[in-house]
Lab assay of single mutants.
Amino acid sequence: QRITLKDYAMRFGQTKTAKDLGVYQSAINKAIHAGRKIFLTINADGSVYAEEVKDGEVKPFPS
């Protein structure tokens, strides 16, 4: 399943989102408010992988 960072954070909370991605909650808040195009893939085992689309390139998040 693929979902935006904002939607994932709204569904699970910023604290869990940060923990799942290995970053601080403040980084999640800042990324959402900056309007960054970050998409999360939720794997069947429950693990989460995030990618950011920037300038036409897709890069892992966090980099």
Rank of each mutant, 00 (worst) to 15 (best):
Q1W: 10
Q1Y: 13
Q1P: 10
I3M: 15
I3Q: 06
I3E: 06
L5T: 01
L5N: 00
K6V: 12
D7N: 07
A9N: 06
A9C: 11
A9I: 14
M10S: 13
M10Q: 12
M10L: 13
R11L: 13
R11H: 11
F12Q: 04
K16P: 02
K16T: 06
K16C: 04
T17V: 07
A18V: 03
K19G: 08
K19V: 10
D20C: 06
D20Q: 09
L21K: 00
G22E: 05
G22K: 09
G22A: 05
V23S: 05
V23T: 14
Y24L: 13
S26R: 08
A27Q: 14
I28C: 01
I28V: 10
N29S: 14
K30N: 13
A31P: 01
A31S: 05
A31N: 03
I32E: 02
I32P: 00
I32Y: 02
H33F: 11
H33K: 08
A34Q: 13
G35H: 10
G35E: 11
G35L: 06
G35R: 10
K37S: 13
K37C: 11
F39Q: 03
L40I: 15
L40K: 00
I42R: 05
I42Q: 06
N43Q: 11
N43C: 10
N43D: 08
A44G: 12
A44E: 12
A44C: 09
D45K: 04
D45A: 05
G46R: 05
S47M: 07
V48N: 02
V48I: 12
V48M: 08
Y49S: 12
A50L: 03
E51V: 12
E51G: 04
V53L: 12
V53E: 15
V53Q: 09
K54C: 12
K54G: 11
D55H: 11
G56E: 07
E57W: 10
E57R: 10
E57K: 14
V58M: 10
K59C: 10
P60G: 06
P60K: 09
P60R: 11
P60M: 06
P62D: 06
P62W: 05
P62C: 05
S63H: 11
S63V: 11
